[in-house]
Amino acid sequence: MAEFESPDDLLKAVRNAREAGYHKMDAFTPLPIEGLAEALEFHRIELPPIVLVGGMIGGVLGYALQYYISVIAYPVNVGGRPLNSWPAFIPVTFEVTILFAAFSAVLGMLALNGLPQPYHPVFNVPEFALATRDRFFLCIEATDPQFDTVETRGFIESLHPRHISEVPH
């Protein structure tokens, strides 16, 4: 794992590592950095469909709830309007759609991220505490097919990081 002092150094390092053929790596930063996700080949498209489906389920449930209440459970005549008065049902349907979409977004994000994650090997490195303050870390994982303890260390040194540490796991 390499420690850098600025976002630009990290971004450069990530791009170099990818050119060198590494794919299984992760970056840790105290702030969001533009272009980092793209540099890490991180394009997820799983979340939007989950939110869409969640929202649609919410919409159907919201409408069904009102239909059940006003048509089946309590069929009350209000001012001669039909029992299934769809214009009046739209606001609640809309709200429940948003509610379910928001829940699917949060829960789906957590599930896809693998959060909450109480243990991660990088925490074994003492300097890693700085990742929440002013240091930028790049971690090349041992599961990468190109990973080799000596060679990878040599490669990381060529990036001129401030500090290199091996993550025990």
């Binding site: 001012g79 309007r81 214009p87 739209i90």
Partner: peptide
């Protein structure tokens, strides 16, 4: 557009 419709529809 829907708000206006809903209010007028409800008031009748």
């Amino acid at each position: 557009a829907f708000s206006q419709y809903l209010i007028i529809w409800s008031g009748n």
